[in-house]
Design a protein around this nucleic acid. Structure first.
Lengths: 242, 242
DNA sequence: CGCCTATTTGATCTGATTCAAACAATGTGG
DNA sequence: CCACATTGTTTGAATCAGATCAAATAGGCG
């Protein structure tokens, strides 16, 4: 599966400095791809996965459902991401990974990854960076949910997803695929979907964005960033993305 | 500084399986301790730290301040924690680390840690686990802020801090030091301090807790846990703590 | 067409914020 | 030892951002 390896390499290049040799080595990773649909749970809370999952096409989210039945989405993933790198070191999943719309995921046996990283310290470094960036994104989300208004949160989230897509080459200058529903957005931001709807209307009215048919268009990225207090530092992208 | 090494060992033992030899090796880590006071910023946002910081006594929080001036606390740290392990792999700090009340921190040169971990794969594993647990805690906080009521959030946070303190041997059966002010708690949970005050009053009235003079007493941990939908799995503690 | 899911709109309600002031505890300097 | 600044907690009242409930509309699709 050339595509899966391409995505992974492109992703790692967006956050780390890979040599041609590194890239070549990555292509040696054994993996099995699988089609996913709709809201499918790719990894379940409580699982003890033996494989590590790589997103190839579509989007994934990591989420938990509280005992009282509320869903919280903790991160949104784009192709090339390894959303459960943690399973390399922590045995039990403390959250689920679900598809958002149709897509493709690839699975790499944990043992293969561990073995691989042991022999390639440069790539081990890249993977470690990736795990830490993951935590940095979580922290920014904490800020977003805990310290910003609905309007700011929404703008911020849209900027993040757009820039992540752009960093892996899946966005044009102004648009990117956007399979998340308003309900999904609400669960990302700790808001109700009704309120998300109204907030999006405002952003549309102000001609900052357009969001329809699973396609996001950002008319004025700079304005959207300042509306959401968005500063891309926390993404730790190698080249300035904004 | 025997104490600093003791704390670190105790902390790592709470989440990983160390051998006597590992512990001995850890005592070889070179470090400089320093007294900290009040709200002192130990590491600043934007810094490029050359040392990695270990909390010895007191508490630390990681926090950001948004452009509009709101503070968000992203984690609370207890003695033995390494709150900026990320600086080993990411050069720029995307958040600050501040003291909460008086305490002691120790600094270990990044280079020394890196070198050390290279020669001790078992401990490298323990450190990696620690970094991933950090992210797991961030995710639980996202749930807490995004999907729970003020009453639940507060109960949950109190449970977490208490169990973390207990895991490193700094709590008795029912009590632990608790230097956070109501304002700090508010900034942890995305609430106003006025509302935190009222919520604490409720928890006191229900005789679940007592909180005064920087000392937290939990009268009924089980009840507090269920009030906060608290499930300690995400802390990934080696032995059941609850 | 009828079914299902997503978006939109309106009306109402409430948890939490904000503002303001009082109160308590602690420390500081004269 | 007292006046007084300082910081944290507590209380009350007014207000608001966002939730909830309910229903309408719109789009895919078998």
């Amino acid at each position: 599966m050339a595509l899966a390896h391409d995505r992974l390499i492109r992703k790692l290049e967006s956050t780390s400095d890979l040599t041609a040799e590194d890239a070549l080595a990555l292509r040696g990773l054994p993996l099995k791809t699988r089609r996913v649909e709709g809201e499918e749970e790719v990894v379940r809370e409580g699982d003890r996965p033996s494989d590590c999952c790589l997103l190839v096409e579509g989007m994934l989210v990591r989420q938990k459902t509280t005992p009282s039945g509320r869903r919280q989405i903790m991160s949104v993933h784009v192709p090339g991401d390894l959303p459960d790198l943690q399973s390399l070191h922590l045995d039990t999943m403390d959250h689920a990974i679900s598809a958002v719309g149709p897509g493709t995921v690839a699975f790499i046996p944990n043992a293969a990854v561990k073995d691989f990283l042991q022999r390639r310290p440069r790539l081990a470094e890249a993977f470690a960076r990736d795990a830490l960036i993951d935590a940095a994104i979580h922290r920014e989300w904490l800020c977003n949910i805990g310290a910003r208004s609905a309007y700011q949160r929404t703008s911020h989230l849209l900027c993040e997803v757009f820039l992540k897509m752009k960093a892996v080459g899946l966005a044009t200058e102004r648009q990117c695929p956007f399979p998340l529903t308003q309900r999904d957005l609400a669960d990302c931001m700790g808001l109700s979907s009704v309120h998300v709807n109204r907030t999006l209307q405002q952003l549309r009215m102000e001609e900052l964005i357009q969001l329809s048919d699973k396609l996001l268009t950002i008319f004025d990225l700079e304005a959207l960033q300042s509306a959401g207090e968005f500063d891309p530092t926390y993404l730790h992208l190698r080249r300035a993305a904004a």
